[in-house]
Design a protein around this nucleic acid. Structure first.
Lengths: 203, 203, 203, 203
DNA sequence: GATGAATGAGTATTCATTCAT
DNA sequence: TATGAATGAATACTCATTCAT
């Protein structure tokens, strides 16, 4: 956190923290709704109910708001993931775990789809954003791998398997939420998915 | 093609078509390199070797260039896909098909990663772009499904399987190309992937 | 002239040159009237009768306008100086030359006092401006020294004498124009000045 | 002192006076270093070790700080001048006085060049500053003239001579300090200057 | 068709000044 | 008195789009 070095106010009092959070929320909403480039700082300030000037009291620049929005997003995604994987029942029963995880992924995706898309789209044009997303992936993968091990998983190639699983589940959640392919039977697809994942981890 | 209705010239003469293509190419390059929002039309014109004004002779607006760039991109991706799946050897041998397809996907991704990212990132903020990408997916899925059927595939849930397969292969290609997770052994991952896909289609 | 390198339009056509000159004139006037910092680019554009955008077609930034205004100013000051010193009558008669030069300096100062002050005031905060002013001084001193030598002046310490003379004459012109010290008899002051300068060059 | 009328506190207590002086000092330093326009009030407050708000407890506005900085500057310049001219030895010996005065002027300039430039540059854009500078000149001229008279100087045109002398000496000090003209021999220049001034006052 | 000069609305950011505490 | 968070008008600069030639 090198904001200090760049003269950005670090709010100590509650009032200030509240205000900073309002700005982040406003950014969160607007980036979700119309994207980063189509959101302007005046709009953020207005929706946050603050003046344009004070935005620069809390953030170095517009991108700095984005970065903090991503942090919030990451926390929102990771927290329930930690919860879900915190205490896996032993012995590991993938037949019961995997459907639950898929359900969880769909829920998470449902409530974060817009901001996810908006933020993820910055990945290609901004290094810092890209790195944050990478670390999110790493974080998720590591969390999952560790809890599986803790719960007694002994198979090999765990990191690779976890990555594949994450990709599969996320792709499914995405397709499921948007439901854009009328010829797809998503229940059927979910069943196939479960089979594959169970196979991946138990074979 | 509703360009006509909106007063955009439809170039008939070769010289004109050439010029239009130059603009699309310039857009293609620049969108790949720095993204849509950071590319300005003057730059596109300059790189295309035309005047800024004439750009609006061929395109309704900046986004219209993007749309045509996507068309080119889609053609570039679909053409080799058609080739690959055109004449599958019968009887179907997924053990030989799948590795080839993965190789093909990685190659395609390698040469199109940048533009893919740039274009895909527009998906969240633009309806038209989003639809194009959806139709690309549909197109790919349909092509693959049809050739499998033509080659005698009789399993059920084909559309779902194909979608899952596409997602998996693309995710792999993406991770493989960018190689951002040092703890991943990609050869290992590919082996797992092949197993899963073979299982998916033969089980 | 590295404008080219930085993408600033170099107007070739008369219409364009005219427009560029209008912008410079507007800058000249406004800088004279209210100073550089209190002049904004929109005002310059408005007074020049052009759009704000096109200003940046001809100038890299606001300071670039200032630089070109200084060039104009320098030309305005130097041209009549060259005329005055071009063909000094021989033998040198400082008794006739010096009063003429003082008269000339007062006239020049009269028509350029405002812009001179405005530009000179930038000297302390901007390196480029400072250098331009230095080169103006050098240019004036050299011009005068050379014409004196050409006209047969043989005294020593010519550069030093010329510098002293320039300072004295400019100080006088400045005080004379502004006439801020009521207890000063400027005619008397001029007479003293002439004596000193004649003494300086003939003693 | 019309500050009272405009609601600016007149600090009575020592603590307050100290604080006000700190602000002036900070302004002095910053105006010297980067100029008036490039200094912002937050910076002044920070360097003075006070809050931004209290600055407006002691000063009407930013310009008011400038005005008080000028007062300090004037005092700094005038005090040693008074000392120097306070008790001129009689009979007046310009051959000894003038070199001393030049030395004094150079020293003064050396330690005040930056702030002098910064403040003087405001002269053209601000009436109040301009008047302060004028009164400084008047004050200097009057001080010098009076002490010369007190020391028995009986020549005529004293105000004019003093003004010319001040201009000459200041111009020299300035050129000497900045040493920007490589072709100038400043010792030589000083010798010429001394001759001129001795001539001016003794002829 | 083609040029590139011109437009002007739009944007991020700064900063003198105010005000609640 | 004092704080420093808050204000919001002001400003330099950009860029998609238009238009005279």
């Amino acid at each position: 956190m090198d904001n200090k070095a760049k003269g950005v106010r670090i709010p100590k009092q509650e009032r200030s923290i509240e205000k900073k959070n309002k700005i982040i929320s406003a950014g969160y909403e607007l980036f979700s709704e119309v994207g980063y480039y189509k959101t302007n700082t005046a709009e953020i300030a207005k929706r946050a109910g603050v003046s344009t000037g004070i935005v620069y009291g809390y953030f170095r620049d517009k991108k700095d708001i984005l970065v903090e929005v991503i942090d919030i997003y990451m926390a929102k995604v990771l927290a329930p993931l930690f919860d879900t994987f915190n205490e896996l029942p032993t012995p590991l029963d993938f037949h019961s775990i995997i459907p639950r995880v898929i359900e969880f992924a769909v829920d998470t995706h449902k409530s974060n789809a817009e901001i996810h898309e908006a933020l993820h789209s910055m990945t290609s044009s901004d290094k810092e954003v890209n790195e944050k997303f990478l670390s999110l992936e790493d974080n998720m993968a590591e969390t999952i791998a560790k809890s599986l091990e803790k719960a007694g998983y002994t198979g090999n190639s765990l990191p690779e398997k976890v990555h594949i699983a994450i990709n599969l589940v996320q792709s499914f959640a995405h397709e499921y939420i948007y439901d854009k392919h009328p010829y797809i039977d998503y229940d059927n697809m979910r069943a196939l998915l479960i089979d594959m994942l169970v196979g991946l981890f138990t074979k």
